[in-house]
């Protein structure tokens, strides 16, 4: 078994998720080679063979170009599997590479099992599917954090440089950073967070009142921010802020992986949810099964009373 690992380089840095690919390969017992569009003066801590394309010529984000380069490596190395992170880079590129190779593609793998089976989540993590590729070559993307990286090794790769122009349709015209955060949630000891379960913007007041009673900040899940009910700087998750307060209270939040990624390190987690099966229950220390519209006013009053 041989795996080609596709590392990730962004804004001048190797992304740490690159090392999760190594954990996955080790779990499979696979021999590895790596591809990276990166820089020679900034090599990954990896002891194997690295196919390196210089980002200054091939670009950090260039799906058509990177697809061509990865296909060249596949031709040379004949791996059984090509492995990406399930990230904005990986989910964009993996299907392109998979189609070019005639490979079966598995997205967001969270576990590998005996017999060449892979486990992926379904229905907002309420269910899991066990899948098996039917093709000789497989392309997989790995859920962020599912294969935690081992502590960084001090190894360096054997570098094989590659260059190459291929037809490019999509061009990358630079990064845009989200507006500067107006609140730094990182400082709050208590965060009370509102999810879509609040139903309408007026109910946000129930959440902010509790945050205030507890001397903390209020935050929100993405739908609340997308609807314009809260500022983006209050969004918790992969595309918002990461927080780890002493107490995190998730009100009407289902617990999607992208939300959990931003708050699961909190010391104590309470969820208020009408759905007993909501995936947030998986990481909550306490799941209060209740309608937040009824529960929050009563609870806030008790907190205020001491």
């Amino acid at each position: 078994m041989k795996a080609l690992l596709v590392g990730e380089f962004r804004d001048g840095k190797i992304l740490p998720a690159t090392y999760e690919l190594l954990t996955f390969a080790a779990k499979l017992g696979a021999e590895t080679v790596m591809f990276l569009a990166g820089r020679e003066d900034m090599l990954p801590h990896y002891g194997g063979k690295l196919y390196l394309a210089d980002v200054s010529s091939v670009g950090e984000f260039n799906p058509d170009g990177h697809k061509g380069l990865i296909s060249q490596v596949v031709e040379k190395e004949k791996p059984d599997m090509v492995v990406f992170s399930h990230s904005s880079y990986g989910w964009d590129l993996a299907p392109r590479v998979g189609l070019a190779l005639g490979a079966g593609i598995l997205s967001e793998v969270v576990e590998v099992e005996a017999g060449g089976e892979f486990v992926v989540p379904a229905c907002n993590a309420k269910l899991r599917r066990r899948l098996k590729p039917k093709t000789p070559v497989t392309v997989v993307t790995l859920q962020a954090g599912a294969f935690a990286a081992a502590s960084t090794m001090e190894e360096s790769p054997v570098v094989e440089k590659m260059g190459g122009g291929s037809e490019v349709k999509v061009t990358f015209d630079g990064y845009v950073m989200a507006e500067k955060a107006e609140v730094d949630l990182g400082k709050a000891e208590v965060i009370v967070s509102a999810g879509r379960g609040i139903g309408k913007p007026e109910n946000l007041a129930l959440v902010t009142a509790l945050a205030q009673a507890l001397g903390g900040e209020f935050a929100a899940s993405r739908p609340v921010v997308d609807a314009g009910w809260a500022d983006h700087s209050r969004q918790v998750g992969t595309t918002g802020q990461s927080v780890a307060p002493k107490l995190y209270m998730a009100c009407g939040i289902s617990g999607a992986i992208q939300h959990l990624a931003g708050m699961k390190k909190s010391d104590f987690i309470v969820a208020i949810n009408t759905d007993r099966d909501a995936p947030i229950g998986e990481i909550a220390d306490v799941l209060v099964v209740a309608d937040l519209k009824q529960f929050l006013p009563v609870f806030t009053a008790k907190v205020q009373a001491g």
Binding site: A103, I105, L106, A122, A125, R128, G281, L287
Partner: peptide, 22 residues
């Protein structure tokens, strides 16, 4: 033809020993 075969679907085993209040 399909390139992936579904072997099974199942609810994940709850690992978290969190308390459920009702």
């Amino acid at each position: 033809n399909a390139r992936i075969e579904t072997i099974g679907m199942y609810p994940p085993v709850r690992k978290g020993g969190g308390l459920i209040l009702e």
